[in-house]
Amino acid sequence: MGANHDHDPHPAPPARGRALRLGVGGPVGSGKTALVAALCRTLRDDLRLAVVTNDIYTTEDADFLRRNAVLSDDRIAAVRTGCCPHTAIRDDISANLDAVESLERRHAPLDLVIVESGGDNLTATFSRGLVDRQIFVLDVSGGDKVPRKGGPGVSGADLLVVNKTDLAPLVGADLGVMDRDAAQVRRGKPVIFSSLRERPGAPEVAGWVRSVLAETHEARSAAGTPRPAVAPGAP
């Protein structure tokens, strides 16, 4: 699975010396937090990570990430969105920028900062001022028509993850239909079908993240900017 494609809306690699900023968005309950936790588990051994969460963040959520992501507390920052999760990742990204920058300062150098949006609807999308790449997470129980409906998240994200595929037979979702519709609205940009129950480490998504990192490092090298101190580990 290559991260490169012809319709990349983010032509510029991350600015010199800072971490790749990866947005993870999607509707409520689609499994964003579980996916972020899985990515942290899989990537933490060879990447320096931090997470900003925009979800309604209670002590329960913090405990969940602490237990499951095995990131120390000071690598997780919570941003409150004033009941408007899409505003905080799209229209007014300042609180998120502050959170990302303060994590980068505190833990410099970082390789990857994941910004998890609050659960929102299909129109939510990250500002390019906030993230370099974005993943949109759907789950099969929302119905197999969702990819066909499109919307900025489904059609514009750099990666579409269709989550909880183990539930597809139970909710009557046709993965083939979802794959075909997604390919059409996404004009060839990648789609990954994922089941954290069957593959808890989200290896396909983690592989995509690694390929994006490798690609941005290549772009930096080509532009004459130095690589970070530690290269991302090979998948």
Binding site: V79, T81, C84, A88, D92, I93, S94, A95, D98
Partner: peptide, 11 residues
């Protein structure tokens, strides 16, 4: 209030 200066998240 649409000035992107973080005000929307403060009550």
């Amino acid at each position: 209030s649409r000035l992107p200066a973080g005000g929307h998240a403060h009550s």
